[in-house]
């Protein structure tokens, strides 16, 4: 059971994937890379599903207006992502806290 399977249940996930597939190719590529990045970084607001579905909402609007994806998010896609999860700790942060170590220090 990866994060994929748990996000609001498999049914929701499949519906989400279908929406992504309906996006134009350039949007689909950027969405795929963003999702990969979030899975690695592991922000805790990821499993509530709204982070990813919000991005699809945003992308659908841009695609409907016929605009290229990089015009929307800019060339520094990573900066866009980091901005989105700025207020959210990552799973690694929580794991570290559970070990009782100081943040940023090996215990």
């Amino acid at each position: 059971m990866g994060i994929r399977d748990i996000i609001e249940g498999k049914k929701h996930w499949r519906a989400h994937v279908a929406r992504v597939k309906a996006l134009p190719p350039d949007y689909r590529i950027v969405y795929g890379e963003i999702q990969k990045y979030f899975f690695k970084v592991g922000p805790v607001n990821l499993p509530d599903g709204r982070l990813l579905s919000g991005i699809v909402d945003f992308f659908e609007e841009g695609a409907a207006a016929g605009r290229p994806v990089l015009e929307l998010v800019g060339h520094d896609v990573a900066a866009f992502c980091d901005d989105l999860i700025k207020d959210s700790p990552t799973y690694t942060d929580i794991y570290r806290a559970s070990l009782g170590g100081e943040p940023g220090k090996t215990s």
Binding site: Y37, H75, V77, A78, C81, D82
Partner: peptide
């Protein structure tokens, strides 16, 4: 990961 994201997109 950040660099990978941007270079993969490009």
């Amino acid at each position: 990961w950040r660099e990978q994201l941007n270079s993969n997109v490009a």
